[in-house]
């Protein structure tokens, strides 16, 4: 089985689906000849031609508006937004149009498309190349939100997302793009949307993370184990719809939960996860749920490692929660 990093796995997923389905088209800034600034679309224009992988003018709102029009016609567009920090010119199209088409038209129209966009910090990108805006899309009824943590999941989740009949925001943790290599099967396979995965088992504390922060959570869990604290680490994979059953089943065993994410704390997705755990597993809780997150500041450049919820901040949270 070939070894791939996440960039290669995503590229492979696009190739698989574009070969399988002529209706799949890729568009965005620099996705053509250059293959994207992170090279996820490298070689697609050579193989599939300019009509199926094309560069756009530099206007995110236009990329989304045009992609929505293509999806309404029946294509399966996969627009790329170069950094999720730059998605906001397209926010109106995503929130007011993409998310609402099926609902507002009584089911007459659907918009099956996947917005691919790199997310998160840890690459010395300052606040315009590092943010994690996932909760701003989860909060909008009608969008599915995905964030893989590894190459294998990235390919399987992207293939599921393109085949899904609902719009999907597909956040790619750019810090992981080339950092992790894994066995990735050739050809077609899918990972269902809406299913989290327990990636480390333990009976003391539930840890929920996704994307690049999964590795920090695992590193902290490893260190906690040396102090006798065993963590159940859940990789959400799909953020919305949330696999609440997986989280609740874990919390019912551990009685404790720590949620980790890069985005600012207040109204971050951790807030919703904690609220749901309170609603559904309150009587199982042995300690207050804890969020280890980015601070409620813009994402800083020089001090980014102090901003990010890295293992050194997760570990004390695990210990305090376990000993509460």
């Amino acid at each position: 089985m070939p070894q791939m990093n996440m960039v290669q796995a995503l590229n492979d997923a696009l190739r698989v689906e574009m070969r399988r389905n002529r209706d799949v088209v890729v568009l965005g800034e620099d996705v053509g000849k250059l293959g994207g600034v992170f090279r996820v679309t490298q070689g697609l224009q050579d193989e599939f031609g300019e009509s199926r992988c094309f560069d756009t003018p530099l206007a995110e709102g236009g990329i989304l508006g045009v992609a929505i029009g293509m999806a309404l016609y029946g294509l399966r567009p996969v627009p790329e937004i170069q950094f999720s920090d730059f998605i906001f010119p397209a926010y109106d199209q995503i929130v007011s149009e993409l998310a609402k088409y099926r609902y507002r038209s009584g089911g007459e129209y659907t918009c099956p498309l996947v917005v691919r966009t790199p997310v998160g910090g840890g690459i010395r990108g300052g606040h315009y190349h590092s943010q994690s805006p996932e909760s701003q899309f989860i909060h909008v009824a009608g969008l599915k939100v995905v964030c893989p943590s590894n190459p294998y999941d990235a390919k399987g989740l992207l293939l599921s997302s393109i085949r899904d009949d609902d719009p999907v925001l597909f956040f790619e943790p750019k810090r992981v793009y080339r950092a992790a290599r894994a066995d990735v099967p050739e050809g077609d396979y899918t990972i269902p949307l809406g299913e989290a995965k327990v990636v480390r088992e333990g009976q003391h504390v539930t840890v929920v993370a996704w994307g690049a922060m999964l590795y920090e959570a695992l590193a902290a869990a490893e260190q906690a184990a040396t102090q006798g604290i065993e963590c159940d680490v859940i990789d959400l994979r799909t953020l919305w719809p949330l696999d609440i059953d997986c989280i609740v089943a874990s919390v019912e065993r551990t009685g404790r939960i720590v949620v980790v994410h890069e985005a600012p704390k207040s109204c971050g997705f951790g807030s919703e996860i904690v609220a749901l755990v309170n609603e559904k597993a309150f009587l199982h809780l042995e300690a207050p749920p804890v969020r280890v997150t980015g601070w409620d500041t813009p994402f800083p450049y020089t001090l980014e490692n102090e901003y990010l919820p890295l293992a050194h901040r997760i570990l004390p949270a695990l210990v305090e929660t376990a000993r509460y």
Binding site: G69, Y73, E97
Partner: peptide, 16 residues
């Protein structure tokens, strides 16, 4: 908002 969508729709039709 419908203006860009009309453009994408027309491009898709031409693609087909």
């Amino acid at each position: 908002t419908q203006i860009t969508q009309a453009v994408g729709f027309a491009m898709a039709a031409r693609h087909k």
